[in-house]
Simulated assay, not measured.
Amino acid sequence: MFAITAARIDKDNPLDALGVGEHPDPVPPDGWTTVTVKAAALNHHDLFSLRGVGLSADKCPMVLGCDAAGLDEDGNPVIVHAVIGDADAGGGDETRDPRRSLLSEVHDGTFAEKVAVPRRNLIPKPDELSFEEAACLPTAWLTAYRMLFDKAGLEPGAPILVQGAGGGVTSALIRLAATSGYRVYATSRSETKRAKALELGAHEALESGARLPEKVDAVFDTVGAATWKHSLRALRPGGKIVTCGATSGDAPSAELTRVFFLQLQVIGSTMGSRDQLRRLVEFCARTGVRPEIDRVLPLARAAEGFRAMDQGDLFGKVVFTA
């Protein structure tokens, strides 16, 4: 079958490690099944994998990709939950299983004509969502859904800040929060991305590091070192930072004095459970909220999407069609 792989690991030039071509068809073990992929979405995780983050050289070549929507073996439209783990080991949540992994870390991923997954990882795709839209949900949108509705625990109308508008998670946060009645502030270095954030429903979009009109109840930070100081200073006393990533580095000054004096909370969040994905899909189907798709490319042109992500030249999701 045709697939996009991490042919090897290259920390300095990750795009040089991208493999494009034939790969063996998946052979599902007991309890697993195959899905014919119709659409798959690109994530920063895929770029990190080429650098060897979460993927070891001995696993290469590895089919990349976490997210997919397609047809199961009976021809039913389905969405793939990307977390390979045991919900029982995680107290009902696969993401807390200490042995969990994502597709494309231990098992081949979704950037291929077919992918093998545990049967329990499939949920029905509603007719209201296209395959391209559905493929955007399992990683970036599910991460945003958990951060906003589970980890932050805020009532609609609360002021929040989304750092670094433009990525898959941040565009999802803006759309989900604005649709649900939160007052959303967003930041970006790019004037174009600030304008797009306003189109998604942000109350106000500011330059990165700019002083906000008010202190917020929660900051959603996927950037890390470059925005951490600003995130702490944007919070009201008792406010929360919810973090799911550190694309600019993971070693900022903790500023513990500010954290304990203002009784701030720092909350980590990773992905979301299969049940949360099911609820997110229903939310989108019922409300008409749809993922922001930057571009759709055939799988054979996947390198273009990787290049755009590496250069930060996108807003929303890149989707590949098989």
Rank of each mutant, 00 (worst) to 15 (best):
R183T: 15
G109Q: 00
L122F: 06
A195F: 02
S130L: 08
L176W: 07
T192P: 02
V162A: 04
L154Q: 06
K151F: 01
E199L: 12
L154D: 02
G109C: 00
Y182N: 05
R175Q: 12
I84A: 07
D127W: 12
R189T: 13
R100G: 02
I160E: 01
A202I: 02
L176S: 07
P156A: 11
G91M: 08
T139A: 15
A178V: 09
A197R: 03
P156D: 11
A89G: 02
G157Q: 09
A82D: 08
E128S: 15
A144Q: 01
R119E: 14
S188Y: 06
Y182P: 06
S101C: 14
L137C: 08
R119S: 12
A135E: 05
R183G: 01
D93M: 09
A158P: 01
Q163H: 13
A144M: 07
G181V: 13
E133F: 01
R120V: 09
E94Q: 15
F131S: 10
P124N: 12
A186M: 05
L212A: 11
A172W: 03
A178R: 10
L206I: 11
A172G: 15
N121D: 13
S188I: 09
V162M: 03
S130Y: 10
I84R: 13
M147T: 07
V83E: 04
F149W: 03
L200T: 04
A165R: 02
T170H: 11
P118V: 06
P159D: 01
A135D: 07
P213N: 11
T187K: 06
L129K: 09
H107N: 13
G167N: 14
G201P: 08
G153M: 10
I84Y: 12
Y182W: 05
G157L: 10
L137N: 10
L176E: 10
P118Y: 09
K125S: 04
E113N: 05
L129E: 11
R119K: 15
L142G: 09
V184Q: 04
Y185C: 03
R189M: 01
V169H: 07
A152D: 02
M147R: 03
L198G: 02
A195I: 03
R96T: 08
G167C: 13
G157P: 06
L148V: 05
L122T: 06
A134I: 09
R189G: 10
P159N: 02
G153W: 03
